[in-house]
Amino acid sequence: MADVSKILKGINKLPALPASAGRIITMMSDKHVDLGEIADIVRLDEALSIAVLHYGNSVHYGRPGREFDLRECLVRLGGDMMMKIVLQQQVGTLMERGGEAFGLRRGALWRGALGGAFAADHLGKRHSGSDSELCFLCGMLRDIGKLALDMHYGAEYVDRVAKHLEPSMTFTEAERSAFGTDHAEVGAELALRWQLPSRIADAIRFHHDPPAHEPEHDALFDIVHAADILCLWAGLAIGQDGLQYKLVPHVRKSLGLSRRDAEVEIAMLWSKVQEVEESMDMTTNERAA
């Protein structure tokens, strides 16, 4: 019980957030895109360059019949898209092997991060006044707490939580019952240690339980929560925790989310995830859900 300090101490053993990802996150938070700096990050990284070439020459961005080089791809894709590609690759490196503490198959934590990023991005674009880039970022990072729990407990974590889990209980409630904290809180603490802005840390903290009322209410938290639920429905990143999470009642109304909207999003998510995995030379079906 109340093992929080031990868990947080274990966080120090985590690999650091890659410096280039930290720089991109700062650009996103400050709304200041430096395409020259992004280009420098890409040129120094072979895997990133390959991903940029893939996107720049995909049918979505390029004209058929002509192949664009790296410089042309950087210009064609633009700053916002480039930031997303760098994040996908850098955060992917961090999360690709994660998820053991929740009984996830290899690659599933990363796939869930990507799905959350795309779902939050779409929801952010639909919701007036929301910053879709920030939504993308928070959707991607929402489960970083699971990385810390991997390093501290490994597969033992889910087994210990399972002993406290009742059918009507959410998995986060069972985590708190077993350990005095949960993966959302641990993730928020990790984000603060990575010196990410406090609003991002709070989006991670509240991704299973966004506050309904002012002054704590924030549409960003609602969006990240809805993105997380959409990923569960899409079968992305389902571990031994299953679907034992609640859909917070105020979120559907605050986002104006209909059943049809949700199903369209679910159908879209796998396509987007597969596209990224192909660009990063990861095979989806080999490690399928």
């Binding site: 009507s168 959410t170 679907l243 859909l247 917070v248 009642p249 559907r252 059943r259």
Partner: peptide, 9 residues
């Protein structure tokens, strides 16, 4: 199902 879906989805 997720828990506490209000019957909408």
């Amino acid at each position: 199902e997720v828990l506490a879906d209000d019957g909408h989805f």
